[in-house]
């Protein structure tokens, strides 16, 4: 029992080191090469390639990252409250914003779904079987999605 716990604490630290390391590498790279891409995105791609080269790290990263990923919403609170600083701009453009968000999001949902349905209709019977197998596999993996 004690052995397992010690092991998972070690994994947690390794996972944290990998994530924070990738974050700093990403920021260093965007800064050194003056890339127009967000530093965190470069860090993400760096960590992703690390996982492809050393799949063994998946376990460590999962150990650390699943909880923060699940509760990511909390981290947006300071940023979201900052919106009150732009309140007058929002009010002035309320109609445009509502139109842009409500109407276009609805239409795009429908259109995207319709297009992908046409694209998939030819391949449907095969892919349904594949997805069933894949979901079975995932159940073992304690699948996670980010919260936001």
């Amino acid at each position: 029992m004690c052995e397992v716990q010690k092991n998972s604490a070690k994994n947690y630290v390794i996972g944290a080191a990998l994530v924070f390391g990738a974050y700093y590498v990403g920021n260093l790279v965007t800064h050194t090469f003056v890339l127009p891409i967000p530093g965190s995105l470069v860090g993400l791609l760096f960590l992703l390639s690390l996982l492809f080269i050393f799949p063994i790290f998946e376990h460590h990263v999962a150990n650390f990252a699943l909880t923060p990923l699940k509760h990511m919403s909390l981290l947006f609170v300071p940023a979201v409250l900052g919106v009150s600083l732009y309140w007058s701009e929002i009010q002035q453009n309320a109609l445009a914003i509502v139109l842009a968000i409500v109407v276009t999001t609805s239409l795009c949902l429908g259109t995207t779904g319709w297009i992908s349905q046409r694209l998939f209709s030819k391949k449907n019977s095969i892919s349904k079987r594949v997805i069933k197998e894949a979901s079975k596999r995932d159940q073992h993996k304690n699948e996670s999605t980010c919260d936001d």
Binding site: V19, S40, L44, E58, L66, P68, L69, P78, L81, S144
Partner: peptide
């Protein structure tokens, strides 16, 4: 602004957590 400064740890953590999105993508 005062709140954002007080809770800046939350905001700062957003960067590393964004990097951690690599995990669901990998899976």
């Amino acid at each position: 602004l005062h709140y954002q400064q007080s809770a800046s740890l939350l905001h700062w953590l957003l960067g590393p957590v964004t990097v951690a999105l690599a995990l669901p993508i990998y899976r």
